[in-house]
């Protein structure tokens, strides 16, 4: 009775004129499907995807190093700001040819901003992590310097200057390793 194709309708309409049509089409009122099994499966899939999905994509820190060139570049010692990370993760800094002094990670940002503003764009930051330093500490220093950079750019812009960042990774010499050990 439900299978009302187009073929069946036509004769029915014609019959209507003859006044007897006992079989009325029943309307399906309150039609229900048991959704429970479907809901079960859907929830199963949902929980699976919720647990397996990873929302955090790793972020990156962009690094650029100079090309390999043989010639050495002359650097004015007075404008050299050197940062050291010792094997145990302790941080040191020095200006020019001074001896390295210890500095806390929390103070580094303020120090970098202060020195850069003092020497404007002339300051060269040399970063000398010890080969034994934990990589996490090295990245932390780079991160702090990047944060300081935002502040420096803002301050220099206020003075109408364009920031030229001078930063380099430098290898620690054996004498410096010894020197740091004694501190």
């Amino acid at each position: 009775m439900a299978g009302g194709g187009g073929g069946l309708e036509l004769p029915e309409r014609q019959r209507r004129g003859k006044k007897h049509s006992k079989r009325k089409k029943k309307k399906r009122v309150g039609f229900r499907i048991d959704m429970t099994p479907m809901v079960d499966i859907v929830f199963l899939l949902l929980t699976f995807f919720m647990y397996t999905t990873t929302m955090v994509t790793p972020q990156v820190m962009e690094i650029s190093v100079p090309k390999e060139v043989e010639e050495n570049v002359e650097v004015n010692q007075a404008n050299l700001f050197t940062l050291y990370v010792r094997g145990d993760g302790k941080l040191f800094f020095s200006m020019g040819a001074d001896d390295p002094q210890p500095i806390e990670y929390s103070q580094l940002r303020a120090k970098a901003v202060e020195l850069n503003l003092l020497r404007k764009n002339k300051l060269i930051t040399a970063f000398k992590p010890s080969p034994d330093a934990p990589y996490g500490a090295v990245v932390q220093v780079l991160d702090i310097l990047n944060q300081a950079e935002a502040e420096i750019i803002r301050q220099l812009q206020a003075e109408g200057l364009k920031r030229e960042r001078k930063f380099a990774f430098v290898k620690l010499s054996p004498e410096e390793v010894e020197k740091l050990k004694g501190l």
Partner: peptide, 29 residues
């Protein structure tokens, strides 16, 4: 983050040798 920086330094040197001077460090927020 727990490894010695030496490993990274050597990798950077290899990259530099091949003229790949711009690269990324993968970090976590």
């Amino acid at each position: 983050r727990r490894i010695r920086y030496k490993w990274i330094e050597d990798a950077i040197d290899v990259l530099r040798k091949n003229n790949a001077t711009a690269f990324n460090f993968v970090t976590e927020k």
